[in-house]
Every structure is written in structure tokens, then in C-alpha cells.
Design a protein around this nucleic acid. Structure first.
Lengths: 194, 194
DNA sequence: GCCTAAATATGATTTCAATCATAAATAGTA
DNA sequence: TACTATTTATGATTGAAATCATATTTAGGC
């Protein structure tokens, strides 16, 4: 089941595919022909700087989209790498652009979708501006960014995994988190700001 | 003259206003009724964290928009502060939402506008992930982010102004920049990556 | 079940931007 | 013009995260 507004698209625009862990779904600078909906699995969007350092630009989970912003771009501007076996829905770019012309409800919903993305990037920017690793990690957990993997979480919030592990350990010793298992932490809600 | 796609709006949606340097155009959490086009001047969008630190979320210059992403939000999620005397165009939110329903060309263009914003935030995120202050400053100049004021530039790229001045001085001494005046620097294009 | 690889975790050291301090140049203003 | 505030600029010190190193635990493949 596709999420709004893409559920309004004609059948010809939609096709299913699977990919295995580690697979590159598309690469930076390659021609952009589609965007994707993730049915299950996890996909990371990565950009490689001129010095070889990689930046995680987006983490897509089940029920999320990726590469939407490339709709208006002739080429992809990042790499998409499956972090595990994934089921995904391919949404053809030309069909989407056509639907936008014909269906104002669809384009209005698409605008809203992008506007929310803009806001989430602003929140991420705000989060990454927190200098203290300890505070940043807690704020990120409160923002619901810690899904599953600590290393990916660390990368998303702009810290090394070492600094993240240390912050998690410290917050746990301070009673701000409880450790429910290896790599599993839960926020003590009583500590949330009023 | 309004930039696309907002030039398609009916006259009733559009009104002009001016504001003076330092004026707060809107505040975080206040009701969102309009978005703005900047005819002349400069406006900063700032968010204040729970610890009091402020983050620059966006810098709008002549010919740019701000608060577009709040179109689908009942309240503003940041403060807008005029950095100098400004002329701006107020675009009524309800009119825009109505136009989106009726005019698919308008909504398609609006989607494209937001998609480009998403991409520019991704570029900013990538830029801010560059750890070395020296490299970050040069990358930011190459990305065309240095407009006018060094302190605002420093804030936009997530560095202190001291670190930014030092990086500018160092790059100048290394011949990567030329200093054309107090606070005025120009990139030596021969040094750009191939 | 064994072997390898990756994630989790923590210790030691270094590095570099933040911070604190200060000064000169400029802009604004009374 | 004199006075104040701000920006530009640089020096000294500090602190905290990056880096390097090394176990341990877990997951996955054969």
C-alpha cells in the first residue's frame, strides 16, 4: 500500500522490485528516471565529497520515500545503498510529472510532502548545531531518530560512533536513559523538558 | 516583480510592506498566515533551542522567499529577523492554498520550488559535515554562500566568526583567496577541483 | 559449530575549533 | 566631530570530540 499522494498514480507508473543488502539502487550523477517507496528494509542516501568523506544525507525506512527531490533533476545527486534486503516500489518519473499537470490534488499533496521534508531538514540542521555530544544524542533520541543501528544513528546526527557510544553510556549512568539490551536504549520520559 | 510560481497568484493574495533593520517579521509559534518574498534587504530565519542557543536556519536575500515551508503548518517554527531595512511582498497563505487546488501549473511549480529547497538543504548538510574549518570555508565560498557579511557567513556554515576569520586569513596566505578589501575575499579559480 | 566480519564498547592520545581576550577599523549617530 | 557599537582581525588557552587502539559480543555464512 502506497502512502499519499503517490497512491493516486496510475498503475503504469508503479512497479515493484526487491534488492539485497549492500546493493546500490542508483548512483550519484546517473540519470534519474524514478523515485522510490520503501515497503520494507532500510536504504541510506550517501554523498561523497571531493576528499572522499561520505555524508549520510537521508535514511529511509519502511513506509518512507527516497529520491523524491530528484524528480526535477536530470541526474541523481547521491548514492542509494540498501542496508538490508529491501522490497521497494519504483515510481516512474515521467508519469509523476504528467500526473502533476493533470491532477492538482496530487500536486498539492506533493508540495505538502516536500514542505514537510524541508522542515525536517531544518530540524536536523538545528540538531546538528548542538555542540555537546551528550546533549545532541539525547535531543536526537527525543526527536525519534534512533532506529535500530547505533552506527547509522551516529552518522545521521553527525558524530563518530565512539562519541555516540560514550554519550549513551554517560546518559545511562546519569539515569537519563535505560539500557534495555546491547545497543538498545530507552529514554526516561520524566527527564524531558517541560 | 515576483518570481515563479508566485507571479501566477491573483492580486488579492499579494501585498507590499517594508520593515526596518532589526525588526522581527514573525516569531516562532505564532500563527502562520503568510509567506514572504524579499524585494530588497536581507532576512534571517532563526530557531532558538531549549538551551538558548540560536541556529541560523535560512538566510534570505533579494529575490528570495522565506517561510514557504510554513504553508502547511498552523504556526511558524522559527523567528524571521530583518538584518537591514527591507522591502517585502506578503503572500497570503489561504489564497495560495486555494490556487494550488485550482491551478495545477502553479502547484507543479511550487513542488519544484520545494524540491530545490530540499536539495539545497542537503548541500548545506553536506557542507557542514566538513570537519576542517579551512576546507569548509573554501567549500562554502565555492558554493557561493559568502554574501557580504562575514559573521553571518560564519553562522550559516556553522563556525564561529573567529574560526572563519582565521580560515580566510590562512587561505589568503596560501594563495587560495585574494583579499580585495576589509572583509572582502575572492576565490582563486585555478585552485578549484578539476 | 566454526570462522569471519561487523557492531558494540571503552581506553589513551591528539588535534583543532571554541572560548576568552584584546585591538584596530569602520559605521552609525547624536 | 566626537562617541559608541559593530565588524574585522588575531593571540592565548582550553576542552571536548576525533582519532587510534583494542576487546568483547553478536550475526551470518559455510
Amino acid at each position: 500500500m502506497l502512502a499519499s499522494p503517490f497512491d493516486q498514480l496510475p498503475g503504469a507508473a508503479v512497479s515493484r522490485r526487491t534488492c539485497v543488502a549492500g546493493e546500490r539502487i542508483f548512483s550519484q550523477a546517473s540519470r534519474c528516471r524514478a523515485l522510490y517507496y520503501l515497503v520494507s528494509g532500510e536504504v541510506h542516501l550517501l554523498r561523497f565529497g571531493s576528499d572522499g568523506t561520505q555524508v549520510m544525507i537521508h535514511r529511509a525506512f519502511s513506509g518512507g520515500f527516497f529520491a523524491e527531490a530528484s524528480l526535477f533533476s536530470p541526474t541523481y545527486h547521491c548514492d542509494a545503498v540498501a542496508q538490508m534486503d529491501c522490497q521497494l516500489v519504483r515510481l516512474d518519473k515521467t508519469h509523476i510529472l504528467a500526473e502533476m499537470k493533470n491532477n492538482s490534488t496530487f500536486s498539492a499533496a506533493l508540495s505538502a510532502h516536500f514542505a514537510h521534508q524541508v522542515q525536517s531538514y531544518r530540524r536536523l540542521l538545528e540538531l546538528r548545531a548542538i555542540k555537546s555530544a551528550n546533549e545532541r544524542v539525547l535531543a536526537a533520541i527525543d526527536a525519534g531518530l534512533m532506529g535500530g543501528n547505533i552506527k547509522a544513528f551516529a552518522s545521521e546526527i553527525g558524530l563518530t560512533h565512539e562519541a555516540t557510544y560514550r554519550a549513551l553510556a554517560k546518559a545511562t549512568s546519569q539515569g537519563k536513559l535505560i539500557k534495555t539490551g546491547r545497543g538498545q536504549y530507552q529514554r526516561i520520559v520524566g527527564q524531558l523538558p517541560a
